[in-house]
Write a protein that binds this DNA or RNA. Structure first.
Lengths: 198, 198
DNA sequence: CGTCTATTTGAATGTACTCAAAAGCGGTGG
DNA sequence: CCACCGCTTTTGAGTACATTCAAATAGACG
């Protein structure tokens, strides 16, 4: 259990870096959380289910993806330590999820259920500020990704991704990196061959 | 001035549809706003400047875009009545903007300056909730757009855009629609020719 | 009417995909 | 310890998607 308490410290650091919380509020926040461990390939959410929680990643590495009619996977997000992951649309509207979330490694997350989050937001209004800030930053990051998708080639997107997350090609299978970039694994392989020459 | 008061009613409806505000809070919010009118092709923000405000569109139609090294434009967003537009990254961090925002038609916006927004957020904490909700929805929408960009072809993206905004091809020049979709105007023209046959 | 810009058309090129097969890699069981 | 299996990555060839360049047409505006 000693590492479990570390995880709660971790998420509290994450919160208090953005907002001020009293000891009591911190406690109440932690009480609303559930610690959950996943094995590699275990699902946190499946397409079709209703997403009931937001998950803060304490340890490990997850991937969210959409499976289309042809059965092809498209990676929307990956989430590492100190990140949140969910299917936002499904969470907000309590509709069927269109994304799967799966562990890529042994994972530990702290989950907060939607209705508990809603309660907390009423009890501790400053948490509205926390999620407002979180979503503003997420929005800005997604905006940058959209620009990459419309403005540059797959090869450039791969180069930028590596620059941003230098070790990602060791941590995530290339076929998932390809689907994140919006290209095929075959084409990514060709890109990598070319880049070795430089 | 009669239409100006309409615009304040409009933004108050927009707010009170999401949060509850007292009369006094509504007044304080409106006092923080500045009404601004733009002619077509007039800029609300230019790449390189620091973005100091968030703008709520009362009337007209705007476009935000990035100009790359080769001088090519890439349309990130367009904003219609009842939408907000800004360069979020530049606004949050008060860094040089990487996006331009320009009026496509005669435009009326209600602007709130960053520092005034920050003050308001302290004075009226429930506004944190408002922007949290706004950003959550924006995030979910951007997520969908990223999926479109990585999962489907330009032709399909155009079809979906038309389905979502049926009159957009009458309101926005095709070359900007093309840049929004991440394709060239020439290719969009070919897509349109094919779709007429069906 | 002329000018300016947007859109279309056509042709050649490049970018990225599909299909098929081979090579690499990790795990499992004999 | 090695052979085999399943899965990922690479390679090669042919194809489709999307771009560039150049020129023609269409529309908007003074």
């Amino acid at each position: 259990m000693s590492d479990a308490s570390n995880y709660y410290e971790m998420i509290l650091d994450h919160l208090t870096a953005r907002i001020n919380l009293t000891e009591e509020e911190q406690q109440r926040f932690c009480d609303a959380l559930t610690l959950r461990r996943l094995l590699p390939k275990q699902y946190l959410l499946q397409q079709g289910d209703i997403c009931r929680h937001e998950s803060y990643v304490c340890k490990g590495f997850l991937r969210s993806f959409y499976v289309d009619d042809q059965g092809d996977e498209h990676t929307l997000h990956f989430a590492m330590e100190d990140w949140w992951i969910t299917d936002l649309r499904s969470l907000i509207r309590q509709e069927a999820a269109t994304r799967n979330i799966v562990a890529m490694e042994p994972v530990t997350v702290l989950q907060i259920e939607k209705h508990k989050r809603d309660e907390l937001l009423k009890e501790i209004p400053v948490l509205e500020r926390f999620w407002r800030i979180l979503n503003e930053n997420a929005c800005a990051a997604q905006d940058e990704r959209i620009l990459d998708n419309i403005a540059i080639t797959g090869a450039e997107r791969y180069a930028r991704l590596l620059k941003k997350y230098p070790s990602i090609d060791q941590r995530m299978p290339l076929k998932h990196i390809a689907s994140y970039l919006g290209i095929t694994p075959v084409f990514l392989s060709q890109i990598r061959k070319k880049q070795l020459k430089n």
